[in-house]
């Protein structure tokens, strides 16, 4: 089990605001790792920096042992990681299938044909609606589309930013079931969540982010029963 993603002493600024203050974490092959924390703790900032959208002031980000700092955002996906962004951000005006095609933008047509069938197998609902304009899908379907789109590039590391946001509890369960299935199928997952209970019971390891620094880390199941975590994130 090698290290897939290694982030060391990361510092990110928004102008003069020091948003990420020396964050370090690792994701090993085959794991589900979760970053939990309150609103504004820097969870999304961390993911956006790893995926090249934000540039860090200092620190290192290595994927499969190669530094990906300075790689333009549109080239990061070719290294083998895909981000399913916060708020889903599917292309509302495009059809379901066109959205999936965009997910496989860096790959060949033949590879995409195959990937699309894989996505349809995992999300049969998307297959039923393949010609529908994505903006007309329900919230849960949009989340499935966003995840399907991220899977189109067959990433080694799938990063999910708040996949449960705005979904009804039954759909949250469904989304987490899918995350477990993807994990069983061999995808390594980095999960950012506000729903700490769901995230901790799904993940192997967890990091707790607090105002730009990591305050706790360890086995997810242990953290689930940790007194401080219970108080701060699980409602006592």
């Amino acid at each position: 089990m090698g290290t897939l993603l290694s982030v060391q002493d990361l510092h990110v600024y928004y102008g003069s605001i020091h948003a990420i203050k020396g964050v370090s974490f690792e994701v090993n092959e085959g794991e589900i790792v979760t970053l939990i924390g309150a609103n504004g703790a820097g969870k999304s900032t961390t993911l956006n920096t790893v995926s090249g959208i934000l540039k860090p002031r200092s620190g290192s980000i290595e994927f499969e042992g190669k530094s990906i700092i300075g790689v333009p955002a549109h080239k990061v996906i070719s290294h083998g990681m895909a981000l399913c962004p916060e708020g889903r951000r599917i292309f509302q005006q495009l059809t379901v299938e066109e959205n999936l095609e965009m997910g496989g933008y860096t790959r060949t047509k033949e590879e995409n044909q195959e990937s699309i069938q894989d996505v349809y197998k995992r999300f049969p609902r998307l297959k039923e609606r393949y010609k529908q304009i994505a903006g007309t899908l329900s919230g849960g379907e949009q989340q499935m589309l966003a995840m399907g789109r991220a899977l189109m590039s067959k990433p080694k590391l799938l990063m999910l930013d708040e996949p449960s946001m705005g979904l009804a509890p039954i759909l949250v369960e469904q989304i987490f079931d899918i995350i477990k299935e993807l994990h069983t199928a061999g995808t390594t997952i980095l999960l950012v969540e506000q729903n700490a209970r769901m995230a901790l019971s799904t993940a192997d390891r967890a990091y707790v982010l607090e105002t730009g620094t990591i305050s706790m880390s360890g086995d997810a199941k242990e953290l689930l029963h940790d007194e401080r975590v219970r108080k701060a994130y699980l409602g006592g």
Binding site: I53, A73, H74, L83, P85, Q93, L94, E98, E101, M102
Partner: peptide, 24 residues
């Protein structure tokens, strides 16, 4: 076309298009 669809994607959401690997 792939480029044409990418254009529509970029016009809607540049950030998300970049995540897909589209050179904005």
């Amino acid at each position: 076309t792939k480029m044409g669809k990418a254009m529509r994607a970029v016009s809607e959401d540049k950030g998300a298009a970049q995540l897909m690997g589209i050179d904005v």
